[in-house]
Design a protein around this nucleic acid. Structure first.
Lengths: 369, 369
DNA sequence: CTGAAAGCGCTTACAG
DNA sequence: CTGAAAGCGCTTACAG
């Protein structure tokens, strides 16, 4: 429509200006036929140059473009429904304002919440987050770039195994922020951690206070920092209490396997009166095992979880568990990445965690009247 | 290293070839100093033109480039660790080989499985899938492009409300595939559906066979096709059986709200002997409610779920529920999108679902001896 | 069988 | 206060 004097179109005196168009049809010389409008179209409509459009829409116009012109540009953009071509911008800038969030699985809502937190902070900085559930779980992540398909400025990886870290760094020299991972790892980049040890200490202290002495640890057979730490912390805590013992049983990170492992534990004598589980999923399996053996939770057996997934309150009784501030982890991870990208030193906080006491723990049978 | 005769560098006789470099440092005129290698660098190393590199690496060389040259190019690319710049490719091609998968939430592993299926098919076609959990749940999706940050070829949206569909289409004229949605919706694009009605019929038939007559429906208070269908199908099924009645209670899609709603249902007389839940999450709430009221599942109350989330088997007893082939839904959704993108007519299958009988259903009390 | 050139849509010095 | 030009790294007709 309308006022096109077409200022931006003039010079371009190369030979094949018209035969050079090998793109999809319909544009002999002019503008927005139905294709997506470009900044040039906006410029034409506002009767300014493409540079002015870029300045105005990029928010860098003050002192350089008159307010009137700026307003013209904005309304032209609105009228045309202009949205910048991200590919072109990325190519020009060499940056994409996009981070990849690599997580081992999406079956935990823990990771969904990490994503929420990261996205929130990202949005505040006009960044985007692309979620990439690693097909290998906590294992080595296969070239996320092929799969995630976005051009990336950086990577945030949560709870991945050490090898996974290595593979990620190879796939490009991208800045990397690790979440819930070994802070001492080789060439460790920024790390955002949870005070896992304190969480386990709280759980153990709670059980010991209740009077439990025979404690079992249902440990996740996953080679990652976070689970190693859980095991160490539990043993530390119990070792400090005279007469208390821990026995460990390992199992895969699934309800089914936890059910089997918990059954093994509960069939040995003396039967533990409390089961500390590395994860709420495992605690769910433990509760199933108890029920099948005719044991009541928490009267005959106390069970604790870890993570405070939504599963924890879907069960009856609800799980006593360690709540991890998942959203905050994601948010801090994104802040750390932003800092690295800015060349600033990233904070590498250790976030506090909290034991949530619910219905799955109580004093052991012997202690009650 | 080494053999650079630098063929691709010659002409370019514009004035400010050197002052024109406003990018980040270190490249006075030559090549791969430490920055990411480009196709030009590969061309230099292989002593060919950039065009040849593109042809070879793009797999379009046969009959146009000699096998020897092709091999040279490939090894140069390998040696340099070349990976094409996706932004540049997208800009040139106008396509990104990336699809956005919009889901209402990540707390269900149903959606995680949809993603898995979609990614698998996508990978077979050198496509990527970016997952976008809509901040508004099933409600209108806010410009996913701003947030997802990828340049997109198409959108796959699962179980979204009708309004959400509209908003998505506005945000660009992208091809759209709807999953688990009203096939009759206005200007409906390709749709991949589940035979939700049949699933609910199976659940109802199972309960009726067991002898249940007083049935309650714990319905999700979510305005979407899939839940509307669940309600209609249940009423249909029960209407066909003399003497059977359904009473409906609606609640939000959470365990907590389901617990409250189920409690209301179970406190009315005559008390239903079976509770049909729209979702496994709701069924979990129903089981909690039963237990708190001193009712045993399934002896006093049968409960059925829907979806077969991992939650279904985390509970004890495990839930009788309708299993949805989530991965297959994702896979078919991606196939449909690929078809649309190819200008082919998309299949719009209705995938079969299956009732899985587990421990949460049994004959009603009156029927047992 | 291979190379030179154009152009995708942006942003940013630079020159008025 | 504004415009003309270059160039990010690709791919693809086109011309040898």
């Amino acid at each position: 429509m309308a006022s096109s004097r077409e200022p931006g179109t003039a010079p371009r005196s190369r030979p094949e200006t018209s035969s050079g168009r090998h793109a999809s049809g319909d544009s002999p010389a002019a503008a927005s036929a139905g294709a997506r409008p470009t900044s040039r179209d906006v410029a034409r409509h506002a009767d300014v140059s493409q540079a002015t459009v870029s300045l105005v829409l990029g928010g860098k116009w003050e002192g350089r473009v008159s307010p009137r012109t700026a307003e013209n540009v904005r309304s032209a953009a609105r009228a045309l429904g202009y949205r910048p071509n991200l590919a072109a911008r990325s190519l020009r800038l060499g940056r994409t304002r996009t981070a990849l969030l690599v997580v081992p699985a999406l079956t935990h809502d823990y990771f969904a919440r990490v994503h929420t937190g990261a996205s929130r902070v990202a949005a505040e900085h006009d960044f985007g987050v692309v979620l990439y559930p690693s097909p290998e779980g906590t294992g080595p992540a296969v070239d996320p770039f092929g799969s995630a398909r976005a051009a990336l400025d950086g990577v945030i990886a949560s709870s991945m195994a050490p090898d996974a870290l290595a593979a990620l760094r190879d796939g490009g020299q991208l800045p990397l922020v690790m979440l819930d991972s070994d802070p001492e790892a080789d060439r460790s980049p920024a790390t955002v951690n949870l005070d896992i040890a304190d969480g386990m200490h709280q759980a153990a202290a709670h059980l010991l206070e209740l009077g439990h002495v025979h404690i079992a640890h249902l440990a996740a057979a996953v080679d990652s920092w976070t689970f190693g730490m859980r095991a160490r912390a539990l043993h530390e805590a119990v070792a400090g209490t005279a007469g208390a013992v821990v026995r460990t049983e390992r199992c895969a990170l699934s309800v089914e396997d936890a059910l089997r492992a918990a059954t093994r534990i509960l069939e040995t004598r003396p039967r533990p009166t409390a089961l500390v589980c590395d994860d709420d999923l495992l605690a769910a399996g433990a509760c199933k095992a108890a029920r099948r053996l005719g044991l009541r939770v928490p009267e005959d057996l106390s069970v604790t979880g870890f993570d405070d997934l939504s599963l924890a309150t879907a069960l009856e009784p609800e799980l006593t568990t360690v709540r991890l501030p998942a959203e905050e982890v994601g948010a801090e991870g994104m802040r750390a990445l932003l800092a690295v990208l800015d060349g600033r030193r990233a904070r590498t906080p250790v976030l506090p965690v909290e034991l949530v006491r619910r219905g799955s723990t109580a004093s052991p049978p012997a202690h009650r009247t």
